[in-house]
Design a protein around this nucleic acid. Structure first.
Lengths: 151, 151
DNA sequence: AAAATTTAGTTAACAATGTAAACCAATTGC
DNA sequence: GCAATTGGTTTACATTGTTAACTAAATTTT
């Protein structure tokens, strides 16, 4: 089977995307280096968006990761004083996550940095292309989840 | 500053790309699991494309990584019997990398898997969009390297 | 209602990856 | 000839990915 297109020929698309993603996250880290956390920014935003209501499982789902990783994320953010775990009275297995004052102060800045960095990296890409990129990403994602079994 | 577009608002674009990239590389690994290597496939293709001529530094450049990582890559591929290091007579510091018989046999399959997987994940994305994606990636990359200093 | 199963979260272990520093040997610049 | 640079290696350490085993609470089964 001859590849339909030559653009990404021979080069694993996943590699390109991974590298791109890592550079971005590196820039975000640099941009937010005055904070005393150097990762899990987006997790913090998600917790903030459902403050006091979200459980670790739900966070895992939203971050597309597993519960073990979430323990690490929440441990880290707790250690740094950004998040508190609170046992849910209705189900004592679950812990709801709550931002501290410190985190609440940092959130707008994190949000701003992400938005600005998104703008910065997409500078020169016109709005139509950006929407198309978003659509393409959606398709790629769905192609991959559909084809986990179709090896 | 209000973000120009809402598509990726609040969500770090780099996170999206990293996750996508990792899923892809996972699929590639599954697809090639009958080989006795489970990584560095693309490095192998690059070595193959300049067989016996490429040095570790040059490989580092092409893989956009550093020489320490390359030592690990080459150690791994050597251990698995896919690559040999050969001291260059003209510069005894350098080592040129050469594929073994075993690697030469595996190359077409790796190439094929990458092409097929690229096709698979881009299934349903039309050719124009694919070219645009490639162009967008190029722009993002250049925006990021230009702006390492412009924090 | 006691026993078995499931769920939320945690702990532990280990391999892989990222990053930086120190190092050796060969080469280049002066 | 000597200092500086270059290609490659080693060491060290922190982070990340992944799996298994575990505790405690809740739910289901009988």
């Amino acid at each position: 089977m001859v590849p339909v297109f030559e653009t990404f020929s021979e080069r694993p698309l996943g590699r390109t995307l991974s590298i791109l993603g890592k550079s971005y996250l590196h820039l975000l880290r640099v941009r937010l280096k005055h904070l005393d956390i150097d990762r899990n920014y987006y997790a913090l935003l998600l917790i903030g968006s459902m403050d006091g209501v979200i459980t670790q499982q739900e966070l895992a789902l939203m971050l597309e990761t597993d519960k073990v990783s979430i323990v690490r994320v929440v441990d880290y953010l707790t250690l740094k004083g950004y998040v508190k775990r609170i046992r849910k009275p209705d189900d004592m297995r679950k812990r709801s996550l709550k931002l501290t004052e410190k985190a609440i102060l940092a959130i707008p800045e994190i949000r701003k940095s992400i938005n600005e960095l998104n703008d910065l990296v997409l500078n020169g890409v016109d709005i139509t292309r950006i929407h198309e990129l978003s659509e393409t990403i959606r398709i790629i994602k769905s192609n991959m989840t559909e084809n986990i079994q179709t090896l």
